[in-house]
């Protein structure tokens, strides 16, 4: 996963980097070069150190009642998505992920904002995780009678 984040970070800086270099050359002012140097340091940091920090902070677990996620380096986040509220689970794999045989699982609830993404799951394990989540969701729903089954 660290590699995937590294590559994505590197790729995402390509265009802004090119633009910044172009600007620096066009302006030619000394402060433009200072900004460019800072930017370069930032890129190096975001490609080398930051993905590892991010990886170290990433935790997810399946508790009795919910998927729990804890992540974020600067902004610590803790998300709880109960099985009972799960509406949909997607398996996504971008081009970088596919090269590395990874996939991410997106768990969606009825809320527009309350969804959770589990990145960096081995591509062949992702369907198993999804099946496990769906099974737990089904059990959680079956535990509730009639009216309460309706999560919305």
């Amino acid at each position: 996963m660290v590699t995937s984040w590294r590559i994505s970070a590197g790729l995402s800086w390509l265009l802004p980097g090119a633009v910044a270099i172009g600007f620096a050359i066009a302006l030619g002012a000394p402060w433009a070069w200072v900004i460019l140097a800072t930017l370069t340091a930032l890129v190096v940091f975001s490609v080398t150190v930051y993905p590892r920090m991010r990886f170290r902070r990433w935790r997810w677990q399946l508790t009795d009642l919910a998927v729990e996620l804890r992540y974020g380096v600067l902004l610590h986040q803790r998300e709880t998505v109960p099985y009972f509220r799960i509406q949909q689970i997607d398996i996504n794999a971008g081009p970088v992920d596919r090269v590395l045989d990874l996939a991410s699982l997106q768990v969606t609830t009825a809320s527009a904002s309350g969804s959770a993404t589990l990145p960096g799951i081995a591509a062949d394990a992702a369907p198993q995780v999804r099946a496990e989540l769906l099974a737990r969701a089904a059990i959680a729903v079956a535990d509730h009678p009639g009216d309460l089954r309706d999560a919305v």
Partner: peptide
């Protein structure tokens, strides 16, 4: 509370 779908806590550097 029966309509709550999910919960997120956020703590930035300053908040921590």
């Amino acid at each position: 509370v029966v309509k709550v779908q999910a919960v997120t806590s956020r703590r930035s550097l300053f908040q921590r």
